[in-house]
Amino acid sequence: MNPAPSVILFSTLSGLGFGFLAFLGAGALVPSGWAAFFLWGLGYGLAVAGLLAATFHLGNPKNGLLAFTQWRTSWLSREAWASVATLVLLAPVALSDWLGLCLPRGFGWVGAALALGTVVTTGMIYAQIKAVPRWHHWLTPVMFLGFAVAGGAMLAGSALAPLALVGVGAGLLAIWRVGDGAFRRAGQTMGSATGLDRIGTPWVFEPAHTGGNYIRREMIFVVGRKHAGKLRWIALGLASILPALVLLLPLGWLGVALAAGLHLTGALVARWLFFAEAEHVVGLYYGARG
């Protein structure tokens, strides 16, 4: 699949933002005054920046509001609702922290749950797609959730953050291991795609078109595989191991900032791989398993 910068930025930034908002909402960190303004602003800023990046992926964004209509069937529509509901519900909690209004924390707990729910809906957008076997697994939303929780814990300065970051690393190793065999397990071949397996073994004689098209550009992306192995180690080190180690050093907020920079870079690499390594079954028609 084409690793478009818009969707990589969207899922990475909004995931981190909603993860941090969950910790702020749940009261894992209760800042006050201008510290509250900047910390809540960071959470909102990351979440909203991610959502804005997503709109750059749209070919026709002027109809964007219609994306709220199909929540009964569409995970993308559910994500739209969950994200807006989270941002609205947490607003009074953020104001309360900033202005010292001492509102009850109830909204915060509901908002925190919704924030994590939003991240799950993001993961389900990909996990629901059977035509991309690598994504079509429960580990996909778990991986998105893991990144959000670990990133949120890290920004919130939680003592559990190093453990959560190590958990992200374990999750990445698991999803890579499971994902590498996913296409084979899905059992689709050029033979089943064309049905020609009932008479023999097909292979491509001539492509359907010599020029590019949307299908090839969007669904048959093969550039990333060459360095996938190295990029996995880079993603694992930057997203998980290094920030976990940095957080264990007595560096205070400087350590959190350093860890956050490392983690976000690693998360972007991991998310790039998530798209670039995913193979769509339509590639079979073109003789590309990809």
């Binding site: 699949m1 992926h57 749209l58 070919g59 026709n60 964004p61 109809n63 964007g64 219609l66 994306a67 993308l76 957008i125 629901q128 797609i129 059977k130 035509a131 991309v132 689709q188 795609a193 098209n213 949307y214 299908i215 969007e218 669904m219 769509h280 079954v281 339509v282 028609y285």
Partner: peptide, 25 residues
Amino acid sequence: TCIGCGLCAWACPYGARELDADQGV
């Protein structure tokens, strides 16, 4: 009413949908 998100084309195993690069739908 199409927003050109491309998700339907991803969901189709057969590559039956193509996003019009000029119109974005």
